[in-house]
Design a protein around this nucleic acid. Structure first.
Lengths: 328, 328
DNA sequence: CACCCCTTTGCAATCGATTGCAACCATTAT
DNA sequence: ATAATGGTTGCAATCGATTGCAAAGGGGTG
């Protein structure tokens, strides 16, 4: 490893001069600079970022905390975040928690002290006090996709209106018995989507049937079983609103497995607009949310926060209906 | 920020004693330890990992360099790598390069100097001299999925035999005119899969028709157009072997778009066994490779390399045929 | 009682870069 | 000729932890 001192020795100057030549903050004589640059090139010197970070109290590194990169919503989000990080000279640490609080706390502990400059969380739940404590310590934190309360440092979509659009569309296509396959209610976005679902029904004078609502469904094959259970109970329905595309895809599988057709017997609408929406058959009508942009804007927000900028309120992005073939 | 010195002052000892209490390497009197632990707890002291890393010349951080996390093979691989990293106290930096050499070199430059302890590359090509230079500098590097030459620090699958299995299976189902939709040949794995394809044909006495082979196809919608072109040229075929599941899914789309049926008119077999293989219709018969394990073993290999262990040869994992419904 | 040894602890150097302060030199004004 | 000015540069402290070396203190032995 060649260090500043090595360069200084070869150039016949002091380490300070080399440092100043590199940073460019303080003026160094033209001739001296040339000698320094020559020495740097000759030794192929690269500054030790660790030492620099220690001195400056800043690492230009941020952590992205997500449930699981294998859940297909996250690659796009992650990519958005990484692109913006890279463009701003930041490096991204990826942390999968599987929604496990112990793992999440471990990561926070390990990364907190002078290690990373900030965090993006896509794992917020109502009981995520540990994240609020982080914030309280003054560490830059941005929420993404899910938030807590009405935190100003958050990038989400308008889940209420998104869900409303989905159900409103189903009703416009003549559906009236609309099941809702939803996620856990201690995550704000699922409460909001439930709200949107109910609002749309109310708006059209359709009464809410709790028997049609299934919460706590995950994005793995859980949605398949949830749908089967609904069907096998003999509950009558002409449509399903799934709170995510993976849930919708699994619901379609379940419906088909019982010999019913989509959308002939039951219409299905999702939420996300992932790549799989175009692969499943019939192709999935869904509410699109800008996954890449969410990640990108979250990272942008975090970097601004790190640079001392304060947010006046959360960023709430819009969704839009993408009509394909899974609704009659 | 509370530091070692703060703890030392409160406990009435020197910084060295606190350090030694923390590390446990050198014996410290029981009573003194108690005072130190009390002070640590009272101040909620967390060591500055940056300072520690600077002193020790080790960061317990590794970089994972992949083309694009949005390509569905990589989430699983990444997850495998991250799990093993975490279990060994390592932190993972994620870098997407989009196969862009400039971005890759930027990342390497930024991360090299005392920053990360090692790299995993899933981006190797024949002309990746910059990676060989990294290795030559003594920096721990592991290749994953793709390799260069017969590098001992690599984790891949047996692509030749995998491709052979695919084509052999198609032939066993009565197919004889088998198209091959492949990736770029400056990546060793695609050369190997081409080899396997040819070997299987030869073995069964089927002559190789270059008009049936399309190389340089990417995993985005490129496969769709490649397939369309084959069909529209009027080339006769009864099967397609796609060198990845995304290519296979796009080929199926293209075949259907021309009014043909899978597997009725044309059988399709893929390579990967991603989640989408079960979503596409008909479900995709494919050659399964253990994506998660590849990532996990690659990380394990890297960590051993970092600890001074030398590999005697590459790890080559096996593939297996998964029969579904896309082959007649 | 003196000496030695061992355990425990502190001092100070070190990792590699940054930066305030002071010194130095050359130039210009008095 | 002397002093003041300003542009360059070097010294040394600093970021926060680790660790070799030496010293202090206690106990045991001859």
């Amino acid at each position: 490893m060649t260090t500043l001192k090595d360069v200084a020795r070869l150039a016949g100057v002091s380490a300070s001069t080399v440092s100043r030549t590199l940073s460019g903050n303080i003026h160094v004589d033209e001739q001296t600079q040339q000698k320094v640059w020559a020495a740097i090139k000759e030794l192929n010197y690269k500054p030790n970022i660790l030492a620099k970070s220690l001195k400056e109290g800043r690492t230009n590194t941020v952590a992205l905390i997500i449930p699981n990169i294998r859940n297909p919503i996250f690659p796009a989000v992650t990519r958005g975040a990484e692109d913006i990080a890279r463009k701003n000279g930041f490096t991204l640490i990826l942390c999968n928690t599987d929604e496990d609080l112990a793992i999440e706390k471990d990561y926070i502990d390990k990364l907190t002290n002078r290690w990373v400059d900030g965090f993006i969380f896509a794992t917020a739940r109502d009981d995520s006090n540990h994240i609020m404590e982080l914030k309280a310590q003054g560490i830059p934190v941005v929420f993404m996709i899910r938030s807590i309360g009405n935190d100003p440092d958050a990038v989400t979509v308008d889940n209420r209106s998104g869900a409303y659009k989905a159900v409103d569309y189903l009703i416009s296509r003549g559906c009236t018995r609309i099941a809702f396959i939803n996620g856990p209610l201690d995550i704000d976005l699922y409460r909001q989507r439930l709200d949107g679902y109910k609002n749309a029904l109310k708006k059209h004078g359709i009464s809410i049937d709790d028997g049609l609502i299934v919460n706590d469904v995950n994005d793995q094959d859980n949605g398949y079983h949830a749908m089967l259970k609904l069907l096998d109970k003999g509950i009558k329905m002409d449509a399903v609103f799934a709170a995510s595309d993976p849930k919708a895809v699994n619901a379609i599988k379940a419906i088909k497995s019982r010999g019913l057709s989509v959308p002939g017997d039951i219409s299905v609408i999702g939420f996300d607009d992932l790549d799989i929406a175009n692969i499943v058959e019939p192709s999935l009508t869904t509410i699109a949310q800008p996954a890449y942009d969410i990640g990108a804007i979250a990272m942008d927000t975090l970097i601004k926060l790190i640079s001392g900028h304060k947010n006046t309120g959360p960023t709430v992005l819009d969704t839009h209906l993408v009509v394909r073939q899974s609704v009659r």
